[in-house]
């Protein structure tokens, strides 16, 4: 069985927020809730700026699932972490525990009281019947049931954001890394990991002795 994963390639992400828009559009996400966001590190610092799109990472051992006081989370056979909004009590514990800030709460009650938690579903809906109006209302579209991949990854203009079977995603990314900048193995070889020892010597060469003269 496939195991679904997201991967965002920081060398390709151009911070266009297309994924964020695609997600909001596809699922009609309530105001104030962002299932996906793009974070830019070292924004404006030449040579150090990297952007990443982040949402629920559908962890194998999800912290949200472990802290939920009503046990409303479940993992699908495809490795997607979903939750049951009918059971959710809006305590916010998943939001405290999640490393990625994925769980979001619509503040629809008095004094900023938390409503039912909302998060990225990997476009896989919820426990309701696939593509039923109830499922759409609570969780948005179930693209996986339609044989499609998540809208954010499909929409990504630079294909920085990949979503799908972990093996496929890993293969695509590996190919990219090996071919990036036309340097082949040099990108992921000795020089990348430990620094350039010798400009003349090919980087993929067997490891030079430590302290050897260049």
């Amino acid at each position: 069985m496939a195991r679904m994963k997201f991967l965002c390639d920081a060398e390709r992400c151009i911070e266009c927020n297309g994924c964020v828009t695609a997600c909001k559009q596809e699922h009609e996400v309530p105001w104030g809730v962002n299932r996906r966001r793009v974070v830019t590190l070292n924004d404006g610092v030449a040579g150090a700026e990297k952007s990443l799109s982040v949402a629920c990472m559908h962890c194998s051992d999800a912290p949200c699932m472990s802290v939920c006081p009503v046990d409303c989370f479940y993992t699908t056979t495809e490795g997607v972490v979903l939750h049951d909004k009918d059971q959710c009590i809006g305590c916010g514990y998943c939001f405290y525990a999640c490393p990625f800030g994925a769980p979001q709460f619509p503040q629809d009650g008095a004094f900023g009281m938390r409503g039912k938690m909302d998060k990225c579903t990997f476009c896989a809906g919820g426990p309701e019947a696939d593509n039923s109006p109830e499922e759409f209302r609570k969780y948005g579209r179930n693209r996986l049931a339609e044989g499609k991949l998540p809208a954010c990854a499909e929409m990504c203009a630079t294909k920085a954001l990949l979503g799908g079977d972990a093996d496929e995603v890993a293969n695509i990314f590996r190919d990219r890394v090996m071919n990036r900048d036309g340097k082949g193995a040099s990108v992921f070889g000795w020089a990348t990991a430990y620094g350039k020892q010798d400009k003349a010597a090919p980087a993929a060469q067997s490891a030079p002795k430590p302290g050897a003269k260049p």
């Binding site: 927020n17 104030g32 070292n42 924004d43 405290y96 525990a97």
Partner: peptide
């Protein structure tokens, strides 16, 4: 210099480690 277009407290934080300590 860590920024995001999404508005909200801590939306620019990519990964928070405190959650695991809390758990």
């Amino acid at each position: 210099y860590q920024t995001t277009q999404v508005r909200g407290p801590e939306s620019a934080v990519l990964i928070q480690s405190g959650g695991e300590t809390w758990r």
